[in-house]
Simulated scan of single mutants.
Amino acid sequence: MTNAMAHSRGRRNPADGRAPVRRAAATVGVLFLIIGVLGFVPGITSNFGDLAWAGHNSDAKLLGLFQVSVLHNVVHLAFGVAGLLLARTISGARAYLIAGGAIYLVLWLYGVVIDHESGANFIPLNGADDWLHFFLGVGMIALGLLTTRGPNRR
């Protein structure tokens, strides 16, 4: 009924013909692109004048909470582009979500074990970033697994 209603109003249903895993990967990709761009917007990123290329000395914070740098923002943009490109196929979308989620879990673990005030914190990361990375990792892996089903995954 929903498809008929969407078509009866003259609008195409955006979910037509697209596997759930492809929609999920594209959505995650768009979110990463938005976050990457917002990291370069003064006001949305507090202490914008302190935005450094990389390193723990970058005092810029996205939404006043998540420590960012130019490198950090570029990584978000790259993840976004990768998500959109890999969302073109079911296998690419699934790989993006699961492998990307695994990368974010490794990044979470890295953030938890390093000293945030040391040179090892080159991205940079703070406690809010660490836990966001954890939830992103778990969420992306869950999306990759739950939006594909059965042994005949394409």
Rank of each mutant, 00 (worst) to 15 (best):
H56K: 14
T27D: 00
I44V: 15
A93L: 04
I90N: 05
M5A: 15
R154L: 12
N126W: 02
F135E: 03
G119L: 13
R23T: 14
A24S: 08
V37K: 06
V138F: 06
L86Y: 08
S58A: 09
P42W: 05
A82V: 08
L146H: 10
G150R: 05
N73I: 05
L143A: 13
S8E: 12
L63W: 12
F40W: 04
R23K: 13
L65W: 08
L33D: 01
L132V: 11
F135A: 13
L31T: 09
G139F: 09
L33E: 03
R154I: 13
V37S: 04
G43A: 10
A102M: 12
G127K: 11
I103F: 15
A95D: 07
M5C: 06
I90V: 15
Y96W: 10
N57G: 13
G144K: 02
M140K: 03
G137R: 00
T2R: 14
I35L: 12
D129A: 07
A52I: 03
S46Q: 11
Y110F: 15
V30N: 03
I44D: 00
M5L: 15
G137S: 01
A95C: 09
E117T: 14
H76Y: 11
G55H: 06
L51H: 02
A87C: 10
W53C: 02
F40I: 01
R9F: 15
A99E: 11
V37W: 05
I34W: 05
V74F: 10
G64H: 04
A24K: 00
F122K: 04
V68S: 06
V112C: 01
A87G: 11
D129Y: 03
V75Y: 03
Y96F: 15
S91Y: 09
Y104N: 11
R23Q: 13
D50M: 11
A15M: 14
G36A: 10
G92I: 10
R88L: 11
V28P: 00
I114H: 08
R18A: 05
N73C: 06
H116Q: 14
R11I: 13
L51I: 06
I44F: 13
V106F: 15
P14H: 07
R88C: 11
A26R: 12
L86M: 15
G100V: 07
F66R: 00
L145R: 10
T45S: 12
V113R: 13
T27V: 09
G150T: 02
G43F: 06
G80H: 00
D115P: 06
A26C: 05
F134Q: 07
L85W: 12
D50F: 08
V37Y: 03
R22I: 07
D129I: 05
R153Y: 06
A25G: 05
A6I: 10
R94N: 02
H133M: 03
A95G: 10
L77F: 09
A60H: 04
S8L: 11
D59E: 13
G39Q: 03
L85R: 14
V41D: 04
L109V: 09
R11G: 01
T45E: 04
H116K: 14
P20V: 09
L136S: 01
R94T: 03
G144L: 07
R149A: 13
G39A: 05
M5Q: 15
L86Q: 09
L31N: 07
A78L: 15
T27M: 10
I35T: 12
L77C: 09
G150F: 05
L31S: 12
G17I: 08
N152W: 13
